[in-house]
Design a protein around this nucleic acid. Structure first.
Lengths: 109, 109
DNA sequence: TGCATAAATAACAATATGGTTATATGGTTT
DNA sequence: AAACCATATAACCATATTGTTATTTATGCA
C-alpha cells in the first residue's frame, strides 16, 4: 500500500540527521535509555531528548518507562516501510498524461 | 560498503521533501526537462530548478542538455544505495563497549 | 545581429531545524 | 516529607530550508 509523498517526506526528515541515524544504529544493538545515549554524543540531554521525541513522532522508535528510566527501542517495521516507500513512490502517470493532453510536453529526438 | 552517518543524512535530506519525491516519481516514468516539470507543481521555475540542483548534488538525478532544454533522469543506483544504507547503518558496538567499560550503562532487569 | 525561449543564479523573506540553558515533571529513596 | 535522579519542556538563538521576484546565462533561429 502506497504512502503519500507528504508522509514519506515527514519520515525521511526524521531520519535525515546524523545524530538520529546514530541513535537508531545504537538501538539496533539493544534498547537504551536517555542517560546512556547522552555521553555518546557531544550534545546536551535536552537535545538528545528532542531527537528521540522526533523519532517517536515518526514512529521510528518506541519508549517504555522502567522505574525512573525511559528506554527506547527501534521500530524496524517502520524502517522497512520507508525502504519500501522509496521503491514504490505514488504513481504520477496520470499527471504526465494530463500534461501531454495540454500539449505541454517537450519531445526531443 | 558502509556509508558514513553524515553522508547518509545528506542524501536523506535531499530526499526528504514532497516536491523532490514527486519529481523523482515523475522521472521514474521518463526523463523530463525543467519546463515540463514546472506546470505540474504550484511553484516557480527557479524553485523547481533549485530542487533539481539539490537532487543533482546528492547524485539522485543526472542532467543532459538537449538544445535549449536540460533533461533530468533518475539515478536508481543512488536510491538503491540509500535503501541499502538504511538496512546497514555503521556499526556502533565499539562505542557501546566503551560506555560499558566506563560503567555508564544502565541495566534494568 | 538581435530576439525569443529555457534554465540557473542572486538577493531576499518566512519558517523550520538543531542547538543552548533554565526549569518542570515523574519516580525513587532516605 | 524532602532530597535526588532521569527525562521532558520552555524560551531563546543561529543557521538551514524553501519559497519569492529580478536578473543573468545559454541556446536556437529570423
Amino acid at each position: 500500500m502506497t504512502m503519500e509523498f507528504e508522509k514519506i517526506a515527514d519520515i525521511l526528515k526524521a531520519l535525515a540527521d546524523p545524530t538520529r541515524l546514530k541513535i537508531l544504529s545504537l538501538l539496533r544493538i539493544r534498547d537504551c535509555c536517555v542517560c546512556e545515549l547522552v555521553p555518546i554524543f557531544n550534545i546536551s540531554q535536552p537535545a538528545i531528548s528532542k531527537h528521540l521525541s522526533r523519532l517517536k513522532t515518526a514512529e521510528l522508535v518506541r519508549e517504555t518507562r522502567k522505574g525512573q528510566w525511559v528506554f527506547y527501542s527501534i521500530n524496524e517495521k517502520r524502517l522497512e516501510e520507508i525502504r519500501y516507500a522509496l521503491s514504490h513512490l505514488p504513481d504520477l502517470s496520470e499527471e504526465l498524461r494530463e500534461l501531454e493532453q495540454q500539449g505541454l510536453t517537450v519531445i526531443c529526438e
